[in-house]
Structures are given as C-alpha cells and as structure tokens.
Amino acid sequence: MTITQLYYVLAVAEHKNFTLAAEKCFVTQPTLSMQIQKLEEELDIQIFDRSKKPIQLTEIGEKIVEQARSIVNESDRIKDIVDQQKGYFGGDFKIGIIPTVMPTLLPMFLNNFVKKYPKINLIIEELTTDEIIKRLKNGQLDAAIAATPLEEDSIKEVVLYYEPFVGYFPENHPNYHKTEIEIDDLDLENVLLLQDGHCFRDGILNLCKNANQIRSNHFQIESGSFETLVKLADEGLGFTLLPYLHTLDLKEKDKLKLRHFKEPRPAREVSLIFPKKELKLHIIDALRSTISGVVKGAIAFHNVQIISPLQKK
C-alpha cells in the first residue's frame, strides 16, 4: 500500500470517474486504474462498484476512503512542518470564501497578496458555509473566510472585521425619510431576502428574531444576489438589507437610499477560519495581515452588535 495509491482512490471517490480522476492527478487513466486495482487485490476487497454509473463506493470502500483521507492529510503535514520551519512562503494554499463576502473582499486584498507572496498559489473557491466546514474538516481546504461565530470545536476563528447591516429603502418606503433606523422599523412582510443557504440571510432572520413571520400574503421574493434585491427594491417590491462593503460600490443615486442602524449597529463578524491542527500558520498569518491592512481603511465601526449566522431552531 502506498500514499500514491490512496491519492488515486480519493480522486476517484471525489470525481466518480476514472478518466477525470486521472486527469486531476496528472497520470494516464490505465496507470491510475492499475494502481487502484493493485490496492484492491492487496486488501482482497472492492473499493469501487464499477458496474454503476457514475462509479460508486462499496460499503467497505466508504470506510477505506475515510481512513485514506486522514492518512493523506497527515502525510501532507510533513511537508507543511518543513515549510514552516524554513519560513518558506510557497506552494498551493486552498481557501474557500462565502458568496456574500467574495465579490467585495477578494478584489481588495488579492492583488496585494499575490505581489507580496508570488510563490504562493492561492486556490480560491466560492462556497457556502456548510460546504466550507465540511471541506475544512476533511482536509480539502487550508483556510476559509466566513461569517462567524460557527461554534465548531475543531475550527479556529480569527476575526478580520465587523461589517454592519445597512438598510436599502426605495423612495416610496417610510424609512426612506429617516436618518437612522432601528430593528423595530423593519416591516418583515416586505423584506427581500437572499435564497436559503446564504448565511447573510440567516443573519437577517436572527436580527429580526421573527423568521416565521417573514411571509407575504401576495408574494415572497428570494434571490441569489444583492444586485437583484436592489433592483427589486427600486421597483417598489420591498426593501432589503446589505452588508456594508457591498454598499461602497453602489451608484451615488442609490447610496441616497441607504440607512444605517442606530448604535450599537447590528453587524456580522467576518473571520479567517482554519482547522486547529493546521500547520500552514505562517501563510494564514500573512493572509490575515494583508486583509486587515486593506480592510481597516474601509471599515471603522466599533460600536456594533454581532448577529450570529447560525440558523436559530
């Protein structure tokens, strides 16, 4: 049994296709298939059910993949130990970012980071919080940027910034004429929300503490993007709440429709998160330092009330 064989098994388990797995491992399909077959012969079991399309893990195969993932992750840690000891800033670094943070934060820090650490190959994916937690736990991500706290024992959270919620009200809405708003000013029957699965949506529901009341007698509108929510609000279909950084890119005429909450302002906590056993801490610290350096000039709110992204039962 070799670590290379385990890498191949994990690739097939992920892609459910021998040809695609071989491409991802940069080997020929016959080579990959032969190594997996040798492992199966050595163990005297079948890891994959090749009769099904797509290929599926057998019952024992699922257990083997779980253990193989642990072994491969631990083997990768040996190189991480050496890199950290040498202070080497290089190699692949896999990071996930939630959709409501990615479009505003990534352009702010990516160019600076790449210029400062040209040998680090950032592999960035836009992922939901649930998918991020799953991948951090199984070793498919080195770190992530998400709304916190998440209350995960195996994951460490380092706060990057606090981002207030900002109301966006069309001219025909009563709150348009206010200078500041309060939570009680929100008409829950007309709030426009992101689709289920977005932690910013869950934050709004937690802020209002009335998730079961957010229904309309006429319609219920949910969207996958803030841009769509803003356009719907402009059409007089309701109002929405936006994260502060997103408001910076609005047109000047649209910024007139923004209303901040009275202090302490409800806000989300955005953190750099990573497994507590993560060894690439020098890269994580470099990432944290770069992001903090660019964000502190854009966000300077201190008197805030942190709204949890966790769904309330």
Rank of each mutant, 00 (worst) to 15 (best):
Y162L: 10
L250T: 10
D185S: 10
F93D: 10
K24S: 05
T179Q: 14
E163Q: 11
K280C: 03
A267R: 14
V101R: 13
I273P: 14
E59N: 08
T19L: 05
H173A: 04
P99V: 15
K312V: 13
Q67L: 07
P266Y: 06
I291T: 12
L242Q: 06
M1W: 15
Y244R: 12
H246D: 15
L241M: 06
H177K: 09
I47F: 04
G238P: 00
T2L: 12
I95H: 01
N217A: 15
Q220K: 09
M108S: 13
G203E: 11
R215A: 03
L237S: 10
R77I: 05
D83F: 04
N210C: 04
V72R: 15
A300G: 12
Q305I: 01
T228H: 08
A68K: 01
E125F: 04
V166D: 01
G96S: 10
K255R: 12
P174E: 02
P275K: 07
N121H: 03
L32D: 10
P309M: 13
R135Y: 09
V27G: 06
I283H: 05
E41C: 02
K255T: 03
L105T: 15
H173I: 06
P164S: 10
A211F: 07
Q220C: 06
F200Q: 02
C208W: 01
F26I: 03
L20Q: 06
V166W: 07
Q35H: 01
L287E: 00
D285F: 00
G238W: 09
Y7S: 00
I183K: 00
A11H: 05
F200L: 02
R201E: 10
K137R: 06
H177I: 05
D234F: 11
V270I: 14
Y168D: 03
I306G: 14
E180D: 12
R288N: 10
N212Q: 11
K178F: 07
A143P: 05
Q305K: 11
N111D: 15
S289C: 02
E23N: 02
L110C: 12
T2K: 15
R77Q: 05
L6F: 05
E41H: 13
Q5P: 10
P264W: 00
A286L: 06
I3C: 03
V159G: 05
I181N: 03
I124G: 12
N217K: 14
L6S: 04
L188N: 12
A13L: 09
I204G: 12
I98Y: 02
F226P: 12
G91N: 02
F274S: 04
G87H: 06
A267T: 15
F48Q: 02
R268W: 14
K178E: 09
Q213C: 08
Y8K: 01
V27C: 01
Q56D: 11
Q46Y: 03
I221Q: 05
L39E: 11
S292W: 09
K24G: 01
L287Y: 02
S292Y: 01
